[in-house]
Design a protein around this nucleic acid. Structure first.
Length: 515
RNA sequence: CGGGGUGUAGCGCAGCCCGGUUAGCGCGCGUCGUUCGGGACGACGAGGUCGGGAGUUCAAAUCUCCCCACCCCGACCA
């Protein structure tokens, strides 16, 4: 009897708890607000908007169709940019002999700790453990999975470059690379990621420098004009520079949580790789000379940047130029009859939109309109077109902007005319909002105390003087976690003193906590 | 690699402390019906080697030991 009672009450209590859980969930059907927990917000947006999912191996990411379409669009835009500037695509192997990496000392330093290594080539069945590595298949020379392709590419360039006539060599590849990172986050840092890596060879230092700067300018355009992501362009400090580079240029951007994101890098490699791989060419006057090199890359990290630049508490907000769908159609209907009426009404409108080159998605699923509104807002579609029986009757439709929620009733005949303009406006408005946010969160400080306070309490960028020494940089990093993100091209160090040491500033730089 | 946490249905969890009923709830999923202009509702239904292994016990999701995986926070990095 006692036992029965005990379980009986447990059961009832359990019911009550479940009910409570249910109520709590009901109240918070959306996602964690940014202000409450930014990284939870980020992860929820990525997964709920179906951009990506976790792969079975730790740190790996499955890019789902909606997320891949975003990457595809970015890829297409940048691919055109580099082709227009004389670059060509090629593909180099995933596997690199271990010995290649040993060649450039600094380069090894940079990547050795995070290389996946292939040691065997076979598995075999095993009675006890199911399947095991076949010890007999051990490789003579172990092979690494590329963390970046400089080494293979330069081994090949050695074969291909003989004369100044072979230069410049302007090759890009779209590829995956693997870096075995400790901590990973979808899109921002995953064990395997997709990127493009450009590798160029030039006859003169000047040309290499121009190339590195040209690419940086393309990155800026990609970020600002297409991703609507305002960036600072400039140079990396010695400690943040690419392993093996003479000089690293970057685009640096501010995320919604006021941390900085390095969104793209372009390196002037000087003659470092040419020396190591012995890549020389004969000049016009028959002299032998080492070639000058650059390398540059942007990755799927850009997708993370877009999410964190524009997203809000309802989910994604995608810039129209890269949005998989630029407008989503949500038809409203009761029964088959009204569905057909809406469809007939919609058909010519959609035909016009398609003719105008707009990417459209029609959502005819049997869900309530409210559900669909929320879902497509989560997915960040820039424009929504609602058409229901009332609109059919009045010859109108409802257009809603995702960037500001503005709703407008539009005459049937006007829709296809006003959509392209609206998309342009949204593109601009997203950029402006992000820029305003960045300006608001860019601080000037007059003392190191103030510097520490701003970094600790407000975050964002701090623009200030720096004496240019690694010691100062380290000290600041140790104490505040902030690093020199970029030495901007538009710096003006005259009359500035170093925020830490008080010495005359060598550079005016941007400090921030970074991803 | 340090510190913390979690593994129970596709997802989120309860149950475990104090072993014993047929392992349960919400979401999601399927069928049907009513709904449909801001996350609809009802009825019925499918779905589980309780992370893995060993042990204690008449009896283990529950106790003990070992292992594994993942998440979060640090050191490192695009």
């Amino acid at each position: 009897m006692n036992t029965y009672n005990k379980f009986h009450w447990k059961r009832i209590l359990n019911r009550v708890i479940s009910r409570l859980n249910f109520c709590v969930r009901k109240m918070s059907k959306g996602i964690t607000p940014q202000s409450k927990d930014y990284s939870a917000w980020y992860t929820e947006v990525v997964t709920k908007a179906s951009l990506a999912d976790y792969g079975p191996v730790k740190g790996t990411m499955v890019v789902r169709p909606y997320g891949f379409s975003l990457w595809d669009n970015i890829k297409e835009i940048f691919d055109k940019m580099i082709k227009d500037t004389g670059h060509v695509n090629a593909y180099f192997p995933l596997f690199i002999p271990k010995s290649f990496l040993a060649k450039e000392a600094e380069h090894v330093e940079g990547f050795a700790k995070e290389c996946a290594v292939v040691t065997h080539t076979r598995l075999k069945a095993d009675d006890e453990h199911g399947i095991v590595v076949d010890p007999e298949s051990k490789l003579e020379e172990e092979v690494i999975v590329r963390p970046t392709s400089e080494t293979v590419i330069w081994a090949m360039y050695k074969k291909w470059i003989q004369s100044y006539r072979d230069l410049p060599l302007l090759i890009n590849q779209w590829a995956n690379v693997v870096r075995w990172e400790m901590r990973t986050r979808l899109f921002l840092r995953t064990t395997e990621f997709l990127w493009q890596e450009g590798h160029t060879a030039h006859a003169t230092a000047k040309e290499a420098e121009e190339e590195a700067r040209l690419i940086l300018e393309l990155y800026r355009q990609l970020a600002e004009d297409y991703l609507a992501m305002p960036v600072h362009t400039g140079m990396k400090s010695e400690s943040e520079k690419f392993a093996g580079a003479e000089c690293t240029y970057c685009i640096e951007s501010l995320m919604g949580d006021k941390r900085a994101l390095q969104a793209g890098t372009s390196h002037n490699l000087g003659q470092n790789f040419a020396k190591v791989f012995d890549v020389t060419f004969q000049t016009r006057d028959n002299k032998e000379k080492l070639v000058y090199a650059t390398s540059w890359g942007v990755s799927t990290r850009l997708v993370g940047g877009v999410i964190m630049t524009h997203g809000d508490d309802k989910g994604l907000r995608l810039p129209p130029k890269i949005a998989p769908y630029q407008i989503v159609i949500v038809p409203i209907f009761r029964d088959e009859e009204s569905q057909q009426a809406v469809k007939n009404y919609l058909d010519p409108i959609l035909a016009d939109l398609r003719n105008a080159g707009i990417r459209i998605h029609e959502d005819w699923r049997k869900e309530t309109p409210g559900f669909k509104f929320n879902e497509w807002e989560m997915k960040g579609v820039p424009l929504r077109l609602e058409v229901g029986p009332k609109d059919v009757e009045k010859g109108k439709a409802v257009l809603v902007r995702r960037d500001n929620g503005e709703k407008q009733f539009v005459e049937k005949g006007e829709i296809s005319k006003c959509v392209p303009g609206l998309l342009d406006e949204i593109q601009k408005s997203l950029f402006e909002q992000a820029r305003t946010f960045r300006e608001k969160n860019t601080h000037t400080v007059s003392s190191y105390d103030e510097f520490k306070k701003v970094i600790a309490n407000q975050g964002g960028f701090i623009r200030c003087g720096w004496d240019g020494t690694g010691e100062t940089e380290m000290a600041i990093k140790e104490e505040t976690k902030a690093t020199v993100r970029v030495i901007p091209f538009d710096e003006n160090p005259k009359d500035l003193s170093c925020i830490y040491s008080g010495k005359p500033a060598k550079h005016e730089v941007i400090f921030a906590k970074a991803y």
